[in-house]
Design a binder for these strands. Structure first.
Lengths: 104, 104
DNA sequence: CTATCTTTGACAAAAAGTGTCAAATCATTT
DNA sequence: AAATGATTTGACACTTTTTGTCAAAGATAG
């Protein structure tokens, strides 16, 4: 998995390499093929649950796919901001702080 | 501004230091005081536009406040993920990539 | 006690997210 | 070229989230 690939590209490649049809994968996710088609082409975002199911069905590393998916979502949120990189650095500090001060 | 302060805390402190009422600041933002009260106490998130207006009205560094606000939003989105830190690192790479391959 | 300021919670409107369906397009086979 | 099957497209509907108002309750100061 290349970090600068889209999640959709990964999903499509993986599905095609296994010779699976949209219909088959979509059935497993319990959604219409239309949505999966859009997800693979980046026209829609998958949900978190769908990503987990896709990793199962396509035999992809669950954690790796999740990181891919989440980071794409965040990069997309920030890409138009001048301060994107600085924001991500500060966000890292915040996450560290929050994790260490977590209730429980 | 401390990185681990909430945006709401910054806004409240700044407003109070200037002796302004919720009513006055809310009027400038064109919203009900109820919302601003909730924003300051972290019960609601401000919108991006409101952050910009608040920086103006409260004479805060616009960029700094924006980074503060955006990073808080992102940290909040990820804090429950095991893979939060890894995700942020990958997101940084993605942002760099997207910015360098931007249309125009 | 009376003003005024802030907080709270119920509610409403608008926007975003998630999905279906049917028709159109594309590719392959006969 | 027609038929079949896969994918794409776009209109639509439903649900959830976001963003706000309003009025009543709570807190604080004079």
């Amino acid at each position: 998995m290349d970090v600068n690939q889209t999640t959709g590209e990964i999903l499509r490649e993986s599905r095609e390499r296994k010779g699976l049809l949209l219909r088959q994968v979509a059935a497993f996710l319990d959604i219409d093929t239309a949505i999966l088609s859009k997800v693979e082409r980046g026209e829609r975002k998958a949900t978190r649950d769908q990503i987990a199911k896709l990793a199962d069905f396509l035999n992809l590393d669950k954690e790796e796919l999740l990181i891919h998916y989440l980071s794409e979502k965040i990069a997309y949120e920030l890409v138009d901001e001048d301060v994107a990189s600085q924001t991500l650095k500060v966000a890292e500090e915040r996450v560290k702080y929050l994790k260490s001060h977590k209730p429980q």
